[in-house]
Design a binder for these strands. Structure first.
Length: 406
DNA sequence: TCTGGGGTCCTAGGACCC
DNA sequence: TCTGGGGTCCTAGGACCC
């Protein structure tokens, strides 16, 4: 086994991208977040981290900890664009690139060693290229397994590199707290702590059966393996997405069912469009609701016939909402997700999203996208065309369709 | 402190099939 | 007539990651 897996992670990615255009703010504490009462920090630069600001922290708390913090609005399209640039640099080195998220990836460079030198040299040249072409810094962990490489890149931050040779791995791992492991968060850490398991070394010394009872079959085995430095997962590029969806947290809790269905229509339309653009169809539609007290419920339904039509999705998700009515509390968040994506949708390359008038159902999606849900009132645009499709005379709030499981 | 939005994976129970 | 065990699908919920 060679030490040829790289984990590369852009440093404070969103904040760094914003600072490209606001260099005068570099030394000041900066976070990226939508500036609303219920926002959380999505990225904090290093000066902000000195005040204890972290991503996922409520913005209100961040402002309390650091009143002079500068809040910058996110620009997802820029991040996506720079992400593509950086991933392309990685793919120049090897086709074995597995993006983990918008700002990090695993690379298996074992096949590039003869051509490009030792993994640490490859890592150094990638770091130089990323900085030269994007003015962003990244950190690289080099190891013989994915999870040790990921731990190493975290340790190398910011703007650094750390190589962990296979024979050093266990000495490196065992003193670390259990939640350093990928897949151990707050809940699992609590469960393990009650068993006296605090470090990865403790974990390695725990009998498999004890672990299985504590955290379940799959997690138990995985934790034990990782604690022994065992991680056979290969770097695998690509992979189809398994679900597509959108969710919205309201600035103020909402009780009005018409308002909820308006938001659902927008989410259903956008989700279905993304499914179409991927040339896929969705078999399962699911609704997510978070009440004022933060309890969250989901309802889902698997269709007999997969769909990529926004109106169809909206109809399902609206009926799922009906099954929860009357709502026990005002709603804080609502979301719509499409799962069980299958191929068989029309090839996205064959149609132009702006000319999506192949049939009346997709036409309805097009109208919704262009003119908003108000355009769907039978009186305005769609009366005749709509009825031609059948069963689409409903619009948000018109009726409460409680019919399920037919 | 008071909790976003995008996801993935796992568990558990029940239905159903062989 | 009563009962086994394994596998898959569906649904709901939850942990976790960035």
């Amino acid at each position: 086994v060679s030490t040829a897996i790289l984990h590369i992670d852009l440093d404070a990615f969103f904040a760094s991208v914003e600072l490209l255009e606001r260099p005068e703010l570099r030394e000041r504490p900066v976070v990226v977040a939508r500036d609303t009462d219920r926002s959380v920090v999505t990225s904090a630069n290093y000066p902000a981290r000195r005040f204890g600001l972290r991503s996922a922290m409520p913005l209100s708390q961040a402002k309390r900890l650091c009143p002079r913090v500068v809040v910058l609005e996110p620009h997802m399209h820029r991040y996506r664009e720079l992400s593509r640039t950086v991933m392309a640099i990685f793919r120049d080195v090897t086709p074995l690139v597995e993006p983990l998220s918008i700002d990090e990836a695993f690379l298996d460079v074992s096949g590039a060693v003869r051509r490009l030198g030792r993994p640490s040299e490859i890592a150094a040249s990638i770091r130089a290229r990323v900085e030269a072409e994007t003015r962003l810094t990244c950190s690289v962990g080099v190891a013989s397994t994915k999870f040790v490489a990921k731990l190493a890149s975290g340790r190398a931050k910011p703007d650094g590199m750390l190589v962990i040779e296979p024979e050093q791995a266990l000495d490196y791992l065992h003193p670390l707290p259990v939640d350093a492991l990928w897949g151990v968060g707050e809940a699992t850490r609590g469960v393990l702590a009650r068993l006296g398991i605090r470090t990865i070394g403790d974990l390695a010394a725990t009998p498999a059966e004890v672990l299985r009872r504590a955290v379940g079959e799959a997690a138990g085995r995985r934790l034990r393996d990782l604690a022994h430095g065992v991680d056979p997962r290969p770097v695998t590029p690509g992979g189809e997405e398994k679900s597509i969806g959108h969710e919205t947290t309201f600035e103020r809790d909402v009780s009005d069912p018409r308002e909820l269905r308006r938001v659902l229509l927008d989410q259903a339309t956008r989700s279905a469009r993304r499914v179409r653009e991927a040339g896929l169809l969705a078999r399962t539609v699911s609704l997510k609701l978070r009440y004022a007290d933060f309890t969250t419920v989901t309802r889902s339904r698997t269709l007999t016939e997969a769909t990529d039509v926004g109106r169809r999705v909206h109809q399902e998700v609206s009926e799922l909402l009906s099954s929860l009515e009357p709502l026990r509390q005002p709603v804080r968040l609502i979301g719509c997700r499409l799962e069980q994506l299958t191929t068989g949708g029309e090839d996205a390359a064959l149609w132009d999203p702006d000319e999506d008038w192949r049939d009346a159902e997709h036409a309805v999606d097009g109208v919704t996208e262009r003119f908003g849900s108000a355009a769907l009132r039978p009186a305005s645009l769609l009366g005749g065309k709509d009825r031609a499709v059948g069963d689409t005379s409903r619009y948000p709030g018109e009726r409460s369709a409680g019919r399920l499981g037919t």
